[in-house]
Design a binder for these strands. Sequence first.
DNA 1: TTAAAAACATACTAATTAGTATGTTTTTAT
DNA 2: ATAAAAACATACTAATTAGTATGTTTTTAA
Lengths: 203, 203
Amino acid sequence: MQPNQIIMSAKAAATRLNILQKAFGLVYQNGYRTTSVDEIIATTQVTKGAFFYHFKNKDEMGLAMINEVMVPGMQGALIGPLSDSDDPVTEIYAMMHSLLMENPFFIVKYGCPAVNLVEEMASHNEAFQSALMKLNNQWHEAIATCLEKGKTSGKIKKDTDSKQVAYFIMAGYGGIRNLGKIYGKESYKGHLEQLKFYLETLI
Amino acid sequence: MQPNQIIMSAKAAATRLNILQKAFGLVYQNGYRTTSVDEIIATTQVTKGAFFYHFKNKDEMGLAMINEVMVPGMQGALIGPLSDSDDPVTEIYAMMHSLLMENPFFIVKYGCPAVNLVEEMASHNEAFQSALMKLNNQWHEAIATCLEKGKTSGKIKKDTDSKQVAYFIMAGYGGIRNLGKIYGKESYKGHLEQLKFYLETLI
DNA sequence: TTAAAAACATACTAATTAGTATGTTTTTAT
DNA sequence: ATAAAAACATACTAATTAGTATGTTTTTAA
């Protein structure tokens, strides 16, 4: 089943995308359920008629926002900086460093939009949960595959449970994004150091 | 500055505590900002007059809920199961195991109330953030002290950065509570295994 | 060019929100 | 026992919420 490309004028597509992008920015900073449609249309300079023409309700917009703005954006941040070295330890550490320290999009006090949305919505909206799970699965697979590659090339211990390790690394990421909200960016540094120690035990 | 005990009839204190406890339950499952005062008083069987007699507004109630219900409850779950062994690896692992696998209060799909509240409110309410930070600091100190103790008794490597390690462990906890919302309780097990491996590198 | 469909605009609605005004009842101290 | 304060109850309000009804304008296809 290929994604059904809905026919739409360029202008209409721009309106729609504008709504999704502005909504994403607001949801990142305020949470999904506490971001109102009125707020979104106010910052978007789009009327309510236009909003509900493009989306039959708020949740449909939210799902589109996840799939069309958050997921592509996060893919770039998560999986993008993963594939240059052939040493998993270096590679994964570099990814996490880039993600936590270098990416200019993230605001420490607001954490990670994907982590936030899992926290807020996973138990309240199945469609959201499923979309967020897919993103997590992609990241998980990228990390696990990287480790498996390292196992065959002899850079990672053969008895490493790549999947388990991948989840452990992901949990650390989500957790430090959370702690960062109260302890600030400094806490990222210590986390990266300990991550490095942990990764080196996989050699 | 000792906590000022406000004089109150036993009945009034019960009403107040009842509000705080019911509010905590609702906030745990639905989030703070999406739990309405009307919802709280409905499940509490208390009228709006009583609610706003005891708390001048919702946020004051929320802060009291954190300090008087969540913090004491979490202290029991976090620090309680920490102090029996003298081996930090065993001790910390046992704490995390009890916290993730044995504590009957937590519902996997709703995660951890303290983690949730940091996620939702840290950037929106300074009083909340400060109260949540204190709780985190307590847990952090308990873990770090446990490690330091292990260093003097020779059970932990002397070059271990106890504070950094403590934050790393805490991040892992918050992160797996988050991932657990989409991957379920099974994911806790793998996390505990990897935590054990990590802890053993501190020996 | 023109009819039809797509895209948007305006003005509404009913429900829900936190909070208040103004009571009544219950408890406490004398 | 009684006055005063504490504790609660009821009925409201103004703002905000998602969503709708009913338009007008713009784009597209014949």
